[in-house]
């Protein structure tokens, strides 16, 4: 590991000032991803600014009935919070589906959004990777890609975003708030992650030197009727091979409101907008769920070894919408 300087920030402005515009400096939150990547040489910062003690550890209701979640709230505290569990149960379920109890107690909301892909070529510094070393190539396209993207990928990168939390946040139209030396800014999570194109190394719309200060969730009554379902290669403590965050409000047998987002299928949490459009005002029937899933997956471009994901995601969407509709009917 490269040697590095260490500073602890006590306020947001100070943290932003300490980082400056230095591309060799990183903010340190829980460290569960950054420290791991530093050990393997994927990340080689010259300086860390520790932000864990910043006053960003609260979850508060907003005036409009939503929630504001501070950037240094741990995954553990987020999933345990009564208002998260009551108003956005799929978010609590998504967080609980990720990592282990130990890691959830360390990892933070801000860090979760900025965690890096677990693509084996990205994490192995002896291999080419356009995300880690722009222009070096993408061995995954012809190599091991059984858990890679089926949506929104490019020939330059087929890695998937690893977060469960961000899938639920995307379904609920979360907004990312950040601070820069020039003042605060915000970005809807749906626009926060950049398209892959030919710049897979550019992952987010976060300005250089910006510090994520928190995430807001707008009020969404439909979110009280939501679920997160994750499929993985073992029963617990593994990254998803596919996941769905779904919320459904059925009135008089017709879809009144619906939210759908997919995980482990793209370089970013994938909002299933095409499926949502099919479902708007549609009868709450299996035919509707199937038509919606097919509409979303029409854009899927699977690779030779991950075609199973198209079937998996179709089944997942139909199953979760079916279950939510059954719960609504009770």
């Amino acid at each position: 590991m490269r040697e590095f300087g260490y500073q602890r920030a006590s306020d947001v402005a100070g943290a932003v000032a300490l980082l400056g515009a230095d591309p060799d400096t990183r903010f340190l939150g829980g460290g569960t991803n950054l420290v791991d990547l530093m050990k393997t040489g994927v990340e080689r910062p010259a300086r860390l600014v520790d932000i864990r003690e910043l006053p960003l550890g609260e979850i508060e209701s907003t005036a409009d009935g939503g929630l504001r979640i501070g950037a240094t709230v741990t995954n553990g505290d987020l999933a345990a919070h009564p208002e998260v569990r009551r108003r956005y149960p799929a978010l609590a379920q998504a967080v609980l589906a990720g990592a282990s109890g130990q890691l959830r107690n360390m990892a933070t909301v801000g860090g979760n959004l900025l965690q890096r892909t677990r693509c084996g070529y990205f994490t192995d510094v002896t291999k080419p990777c356009n995300k880690r070393l722009p222009g070096s190539g993408c061995p995954a396209v012809t190599g091991d890609h059984h858990n890679h993207a089926i949506l929104g990928a490019s020939e330059n990168c087929v890695a998937v975003h690893p977060s469960d939390m961000a899938v639920a946040l995307t379904a609920f139209d979360a907004v990312v708030h950040y601070e820069t030396a020039d003042g605060p800014g915000e970005s809807p999570l749906g626009e926060f992650y950049l398209p892959v194109g030919d710049t897979p190394h550019r992952e987010t719309a976060l300005p250089p030197g910006a510090l994520i200060t928190g995430v807001t969730l707008p009020p969404a009554p439909v979110a009280a009727h939501s679920r997160y379902r994750k499929v993985r290669e073992r029963a617990s403590y593994a990254f998803a091979i596919g996941s769905v965050a779904a919320a459904l409000d059925v009135r008089d047998g017709v879809v009144h409101d619906v939210r759908l987002a997919l995980g482990a299928v793209a370089s970013r949490p994938w909002r299933a907008g095409a499926a949502e459009r099919v479902l708007a005002g549609a009868p709450a029937t299996t035919d509707s769920w199937t038509a919606a899933a097919d509409a979303e997956l029409a854009a899927a471009r699977p690779l030779p070894h991950n075609g199973y994901k198209v079937t998996l995601m179709r089944n997942l969407m139909v199953a979760e919408l079916t279950r939510l509709a059954e719960e609504a009917a009770r």
């Binding site: 260490y6 569960t32 420290v35 791991d36 050990k39 864990r52 130990q102 890691l103 107690n105 360390m106």
Partner: peptide, 26 residues
Amino acid sequence: DQGQCGACTVLLDGRRGVACLQLAVA
């Protein structure tokens, strides 16, 4: 030594965490 096995679990401020991904200085 990469946060996957839990053998290094300790309690930090009373909560469980893995010591291998926790920098001592932090």
